[in-house]
């Protein structure tokens, strides 16, 4: 049951993201941001399940293979999870820095996976640049989103 509010929140957020992409072509990518949030604040034993759910939802409304989406989000969340004991996660600056570095790592992961599994599309003109902009754009709203999710207590 702990996952239900989180799943609903993710579905709403991804729907809003898809609407924004439809209008502006570039919008903050909330997938890696939510993976960072899980890595920072979720209960350790629930991270895997929550990230699996997150990847499925993001994959359903995205264009990439669902497995590749789950894999990148899982790797990102576990990277943050291993570091969170030495971080002051409640500080806004920490959240900003971790979200920014997480976004950068996410891009590298996508590139590496893209070498093995064709993700389609991103080799097109400007595709990678757009992905980078949307991923790093999310950094700006990281503390706000984290605070919102924690206030609503929807994190698993």
């Amino acid at each position: 049951m702990a996952y239900v509010p989180f799943a609903v929140a993710c579905a709403v957020l991804f729907y809003l993201q898809a609407l924004a992409v439809d209008v502006t072509a570039v919008a903050p990518d909330l997938g890696p941001l939510l993976a960072v949030h899980l890595g920072l604040f979720a209960r350790r034993e629930r991270v895997a399940g929550a990230v699996g759910l997150l990847g499925l939802l993001r994959g359903a409304v995205g264009a990439e293979p669902i497995g590749a989406v789950v894999l990148t989000h899982l790797a990102l969340a576990y990277l943050v999870l291993t570091l969170r004991d030495v971080l002051f996660a409640d500080r806004v600056v920490t959240q900003w820095v971790v979200a920014f570095l997480g976004g950068a790592v996410f891009l590298v992961l996508r590139l590496v996976i893209g070498l093995v599994v064709p993700l389609g599309g991103e080799e097109g003109a400007g595709g990678l640049a757009r992905l980078a902009v949307s991923t790093l754009l999310a950094t700006a709203i990281a503390p706000l989103l984290f605070a919102l999710l924690r206030t609503l207590r929807v994190g698993p």
Binding site: A48, G49, G52, P65, G67, L71, L74, P118, G120
Partner: peptide, 25 residues
């Protein structure tokens, strides 16, 4: 059961030709 390993395994499986069709492109 280590849920992390299960999710990782499923994600990797979905990228192989052995995956169910709805997980593949």
């Amino acid at each position: 059961v280590n849920l992390g390993l299960v999710v990782l395994g499923l994600a990797l499986l979905s990228l192989t030709p052995a995956a169910p069709s709805f997980l593949r492109r």
